[in-house]
Design a protein around this nucleic acid. Structure first.
Length: 625
DNA sequence: GCGATCAGCT
DNA sequence: CACAGCTGATCGC
């Protein structure tokens, strides 16, 4: 949960993700994504009144966030006061104090945060320096290095402060399986079940929050089966999400919810109430996405853990792991880093200790030598210009909301050319750092979780899907979901619609998937049913943070036995439940050397450039009061 | 009746 | 497996 109070030291007249108390005086508001813990006060009467009095106050967010927010009637009153800003489009905003008339210009750039649909980080540039507010984010290693707008002149910008999502900023959470790995694991589990018969269904036990959409989309794409949800009107203008969802209960994949869902499930009833299809009883399993983490020296293992006869937990995280956070921050290397979250079981001081070494030290900062005598350049930025562009000295400009569109392939200069800043020129530190970084990031993912020395924990193979099944999925690691591609303004747009896009992703799975054998030796065999017994044993060893995951056991869990009246004929084997799953998966993977569906990022990202062409912008559309 | 806060529960 | 949000009780206005 974010404990960010809403204001940044450098720009205290704007408020982000908090709308109460001091924030009621802000000149402008920003919302990084549509999760309630970032919306405190957003619909409070106090703020409503403020809006009525201060006609120049606006809320800025991504187009998707705006869409999601306005779907709720409770927030409709914001309708005329929200200005959506396209991703990766530096935009100038005037911060006006309505009482004094005082005015300050700031340029904001939204960067994709990979947390949920519409989620962004805000990069602010103004007279008090460049600061980055990350909101909540999940970015894989090396991802910051690929964000053009974090760079200038070929190197990372000089960032004064970062307000950072530190949800998992604790060595306990050293690594979390990548999105691709998690997606692939879940896909295989789903496949192993729903391919048995049309009456085999899965229930994705997701929390009420945006962020699972890419999972739904990928499963739907993979199996040609839409996902049943309770509501989908919020996605009405996001066809790439919408097409994968349905309110028709007659599907094999459910993500519907109900307060008594768990109880229902005990009785073989889905949250939507379904228990049968065409008179034939359903056979269901539940999959609960939850974060699983591994220590530094722990070898990543299971993405799927069985928690009951028909229940599984699947790794899924909206937030970056400890190592991802460190990679991100050390790449940005700001002067200051402030945690937005204090993870449970730790303290703000501990988090600061972790962040500090990743920031610029005083020595590094030292006599920032600033060459004198630079000429003011008439800047015509060409596409690949690697020029440093941020030496401003131009007079302050005034277009109300000046947007700089990116030239298609350019290294966009962050700051709209006409805007001037008088301080904080980019310092010439770290030449060539970017390239170096990018390179290493290509393999960093694979070495970081290598060998363990002593910890006995690696062998946590409790899950039906052994590690090699779900293992390494490097490619997707490199991509963040571009939620925006899901978003389409009023169905009018180009036909980018459903392009098959996912294609190349398929099949390309790295062969390593299976090669990694050490496998067998250590784990609990997934071959046969003996699982539970082993487990208990394992349970007693101190495995890092996850002893509990262990779990399972299964057999003795209480789910009322109803479920097995599967007409034996329907199932491919007689043994209906658990072990089949294992073997099924296992076999499958042995024969298929492909990673079934790494779809997600790929699918989506293949269209990631879309926003670029639409730089047209409605410049003023909004801001005129 | 509404909102804010907290405990409890996923 | 610790995120994000609901429900329900309580208190104050």
């Amino acid at each position: 949960m974010s404990s960010f109070e809403g204001q940044m030291a450098e720009y205290p007249t704007i408020s982000i993700d908090r709308f109460d108390r001091e924030n009621l005086r802000a000149r402008a508001y920003f919302l990084s994504h549509c999760h309630k813990d970032h919306m405190k006060g957003l619909r409070a009467p106090a703020l409503k009144r403020r809006l009525e009095c201060s006609l120049k106050v606006y809320l800025y967010c991504s187009p998707v966030t705006k869409e999601l927010l306005l779907t709720s009637p409770k927030y409709r009153f914001w309708e005329k006061r929200i200005i959506s800003i396209e991703i990766e489009t530096p935009t100038q905003i005037s911060l006006i104090d309505e009482a004094s008339g005082e005015k300050e210009e700031i340029v904001v750039t939204l960067l994709p945060a990979g947390h949920c649909p519409g989620s962004v980080m805000f990069l602010f540039q103004g007279s008090n320096g460049t600061v980055l507010y990350t909101g909540d984010f999940r970015l894989a290693k090396g991802e910051a290095a690929r964000m053009e707008l974090l760079h200038s002149g070929g190197r990372v910008k000089d960032i004064q402060s970062v307000y950072l999502d530190t949800t998992f900023c604790d060595p306990r959470f050293y690594q979390i399986p990548s999105r691709g790995e998690c997606l692939s694991g879940i896909t295989e589990l789903v496949r192993s079940w729903i391919t048995r018969s049309p009456y085999h269904v899965v229930w994705l036990n997701c929390k009420a929050a945006y962020g699972y959409e890419y999972l739904f989309a990928n499963l739907s794409e993979e199996f040609g089966v839409q996902v049943h949800v309770d509501k989908l009107d919020m996605f009405r203008n996001m066809p790439d999400i919408l097409h994968h969802l349905t309110t028709d209960r007659g599907t094999q994949i459910h993500a519907c919810r109900h307060p008594k869902a768990e109880e229902y499930f005990q009785w073989n009833k889905l949250p939507c109430g379904s228990t049968s299809r065409n008179g034939t009883p359903l056979h269901s399993i539940s999959i609960k996405p939850s974060t699983m983490w591994f220590g530094e020296r722990t070898r990543k293992t299971n993405i799927i853990v069985r928690t009951g006869e028909s229940s599984y937990r699947a790794c899924f995280s909206f937030h970056s792991s400890y190592s991802e956070i460190k990679d991100f921050l050390s790449y940005i290397c700001p002067v200051n880093a402030y945690p937005n979250v204090i993870p449970m079981g730790t303290t703000i001081d501990k988090v600061r200790e972790i962040l500090k070494p990743l920031c610029r030290s005083l020595q590094n900062t030292e006599p920032k030598y600033k060459p004198l005598g630079k000429l003011k350049r008439a800047k015509i930025t060409y596409q690949d210009s690697e020029e440093e562009d941020d030496l401003f000295d131009d007079p302050l400009p005034p277009p109300l909301r000046y947007k700089v569109s990116k030239l298609q392939t350019s290294h966009p200069d962050t700051v709209p050319k006409t805007i001037g800043f008088s301080s904080q020129p980019e310092s010439p530190r770290r030449e060539g750092f970017k390239a170096e970084r990018m390179q290493s990031s290509l393999w960093a993912n694979f070495i970081d979780c290598e060998e363990s020395n002593s910890e006995s924990e690696d062998e946590l193979q409790i899950s039906p899907l052994s590690e090699r099944d779900l293992g390494h999925q490097q490619k997707t690691e490199m991509e963040i979901p571009q939620w925006e591609v899901f978003f389409k303004r009023k169905a009018a747009d180009d036909g980018l619609g459903n392009g098959p896009s996912s294609t190349e992703a398929e099949g390309s799975q790295s062969p390593k998937l299976f090669s990694d054998s050490d496998g067998e030796s250590t784990h609990i065999s997934s071959q046969n049913s003996s699982q539970s017994t082993h487990i208990s044993e394992q349970g007693s060893q101190g495995w890092d943070s996850q002893s509990d995951t262990v779990l399972l056991s299964s057999q003795e869990r209480n789910r009322p036995k109803i479920k097995e009246y599967i007409p034996a004929s329907e199932t491919k084997e007689n043994v209906p439940c658990p072990e089949d799953t294992y073997t099924a998966l296992k076999c499958r993977d042995q024969y298929l050397n492909i990673a079934p569906s790494i779809g997600e990022p790929t699918t989506l990202s293949s269209r990631k450039n879309i926003p670029q062409d639409k730089m047209v912008l409605n410049t003023s559309s909004s801001a005129d009061s």
